[in-house]
């Protein structure tokens, strides 16, 4: 194809994760066809065994770093990528598996595996940014398809992607969902959670679980006070902040504050 050399190259990489975020790319429908025409997909092991050596204009990186080998691999990918975009809660905050940072990994290992001695892993599950510089982070578990298309479209156009920095509350209003804590006393992490999902859970009557992680400066102390007022126990308050982004500084502090009675 004559236009081949002008197309920016894209690589997609997986670390410790469930694949849900990179599959979001395959789930982009018609946008995927346009993307495939405008981008040269140089590496996407999930979709094709053909892996070009790079360098890559853009690398999308899913998953957290849990082994020495992965720590070396992400440094190598960084060196071969002009732009590195971390996608999803694992890559941006450690993900569910980072819960082990708060507990004894050896004990988990002994309980899960018949021969734990064969399993080699780090004591922590850390976000990509703990290992290499990251140009952009897409949050969420999984990421939002619209945000992924927006980021790739913005990169192609050379503009700043339109990614909200406010909380989920703005998206509840945009969607016309009356505030759940106010109309039903439902515990909700929306006021401290980064928008991006389109306020999906509250639209179905469920409080926000916080899967997009904390806004930059959340007032978790005020939210903890509200959760207490709504009747949640200290143990439960500790737990609601220890899910997808438990080791972020903001939610770690909130969980500790909440667990104190």
């Amino acid at each position: 194809m004559a236009t081949e050399p002008a197309r920016p190259s894209l690589a997609v990489w997986k670390f410790a994760s469930c694949d849900g975020c990179q599959l979001t790319l395959l789930d982009c429908g018609d946008a995927l066809l346009t993307l495939a025409a405008r981008l040269h997909i140089a590496a996407f092991p999930e979709a094709s065994s053909m892996i070009e050596p790079g360098p890559y204009d853009v690398s999308l990186v899913e998953g957290s770093i849990t082994t020495e080998e992965d720590a070396a691999r992400i440094r190598d990918i960084r060196a071969r990528s002009t732009l590195l975009v971390a996608i999803g809660a694992c890559a941006t905050a450690g993900g569910i598996q980072a819960l082990r940072d708060l507990a004894d990994v050896d004990e988990f290992r002994a309980q899960v595996y018949p021969h734990p001695e064969y399993v080699r892993s780090l004591a922590t599950a850390t976000p990509i940014s703990a290992h290499v510089p990251v140009d952009l982070e897409l949050h969420g578990c999984p990421i939002d398809r619209g945000q992924l298309v927006e980021v790739l479209g913005a990169l192609l156009a050379g503009r700043k992607p339109d990614l909200p920095v406010h909380s989920v509350c703005a998206q509840c209003k945009a969607r016309g969902t009356p505030c759940l804590p106010v109309v039903a006393g439902v515990p909700c992490l929306g006021p401290v959670t980064r928008a991006g999902c389109g306020a999906l859970c509250p639209a179905y009557g469920r409080g926000c679980f916080g899967c997009f992680g904390p806004v930059e400066r959340p007032n978790t102390r005020a939210l903890v006070a509200l959760l207490r007022h709504q009747g949640m126990s200290p143990a439960d308050i500790g737990r609601v902040f220890r899910t997808y982004t438990a080791t972020t500084a903001q939610f770690r502090a909130a969980a500790e504050e909440g667990a104190r009675s």
């Binding site: 909380s167 006021p191 401290v192 007032n219």
Partner: peptide, 8 residues
């Protein structure tokens, strides 16, 4: 200290 800055 009390305000969530949620913009509601």
């Amino acid at each position: 200290e009390r305000c969530l800055a949620c913009a509601n």
